[in-house]
Computed example of a mutant assay.
Amino acid sequence: MAAAGDDAVIGSTPLPLAFARHLARDRRRSAHTVRAYGATAERLTAFLARHWGGAVDARALAAITTADVRAYLAARRGEGLANASTARELSAVRAFLAFAGVEAPRLKGPRVGKGVPRPIAPDEAVALAEEVDEDAAEPWIGLRDFAVLLLLYGAGLRIGEALALTGASLPLGETLAVTGKRGKTRIVPLLPQVRVAIEHYVAECPWPMARDLPLFRGAKGGALSPGVVRVSVRKARARLGLGERTTPHALRHSFATHLLGRGADLRSLQELLGHASLGSTQIYTAVDAAHLLDVYRNAHPRA
C-alpha cells in the first residue's frame, strides 16, 4: 500500500490514527480490532521515538530493522505480555508497517512448547478470539466468531450449546438460559463484555433475528456449523503459536479451571457447566493442581 506510506497522503494526521481510520473505513474491521491495532501502532511509534531519539513518520519507519522490532517486543514482554498476545502484537506491527509502505522485517512469532495440555490464559483466550475476528472474510462474520468464542470462555458453554441459541435469547440480560445435554436447561451469568460482543454481532448481522431462528448464522443465513468455528480457531492458534489442544472446547475447560482457581466450589461449578454428576466436574481439580504445580516449579527458588 504505497500510497498510504506517502507523507503527502497522510498529511498532518498522525500515522497511527491514519492506520486506525484505514482499518475502519477501508478494511471495515471491527471496532475492537481497530482499537487493538491502533493501540499497537501508537505504542510502536512511541517506543521508536524513544529508541531512535527522534520523530517517527512513514519515512523514518522505512529504516526499521529486525533488531528494532525485537527490542519493541522484548519491552512488551517485560510488561507481562504472554506468548499469544505477543504474536498478536507482532501481527499488528506487520499490518501497521504494511500500511506505511514498509516491508516488515522477517521475524517469527513466539512459540508455545509442546507438553502436558493446560488451560489457556485469559489474555490468550481474548487474543484467540481477536485473531479469528481479524481473519474473517466479512466484518459481521468476524464479530460473530468473536462473540461465539467469548461466550464459550466467558460462560463455559459447549460449542453446540452456543450454536443452539436462538433469537429468543434477545434482548440479552445479565443471565442466559442454555439448553444442555439431555435437554436440561440451566441459567448462566453473562459477563458485560460477552453481552456487548453478542450485541455488536446482532447489530451487524445481515440476517433477521426471529425468535425461532438461530442466533449465530452462517455466511448464507443458515445455522452456523461447529466445523466452521473449529477451522477458524485452528488457523488462528497456528498464527498465535498456541498448542493444538487449543480448541473451542478448551475455552470451556479454561472457564472451569479459572473459576476453580479463584475459589469457586465444585457444586456451583457443576451447575454452571451443566454436568449431570459431580464426578464430571472433579476433573478440574486435577487440572488446577497441575497448573499450580507449574507455578510452584517456576517460582520457588528450591523447586
Rank of each mutant, 00 (worst) to 15 (best):
A2K: 15
D6A: 03
P16G: 03
A20L: 06
R21A: 13
A31W: 07
H32G: 03
T40P: 00
T66N: 10
T66K: 15
R76D: 09
G78Y: 01
E79V: 05
A82I: 13
N83Y: 07
T86Y: 01
E89G: 08
A98S: 11
F99V: 02
F99N: 02
A100R: 10
A104I: 07
P105G: 05
K108G: 15
R111P: 03
G115Q: 06
P117I: 10
D123G: 02
A129W: 00
D133G: 02
E138G: 06
I141N: 00
F146Q: 09
V148H: 11
T166D: 07
S169F: 00
S169E: 07
P171K: 08
E174W: 08
T175L: 10
A177Y: 10
G183D: 06
K184C: 06
P189F: 05
P192R: 09
Q193E: 12
E199H: 10
H200G: 08
A203F: 02
P208L: 06
L213K: 10
P214C: 00
P214A: 00
F216H: 08
G218L: 00
G218E: 01
K220E: 11
G222H: 06
V229F: 03
R234E: 13
T247D: 01
T247C: 03
A250K: 11
A250F: 02
F255E: 04
H258S: 02
D265Q: 05
Q270N: 07
A276Q: 13
A276N: 07
G279Q: 14
G279S: 15
A289M: 12
D294E: 14
N298M: 11
A299D: 05
A299C: 03
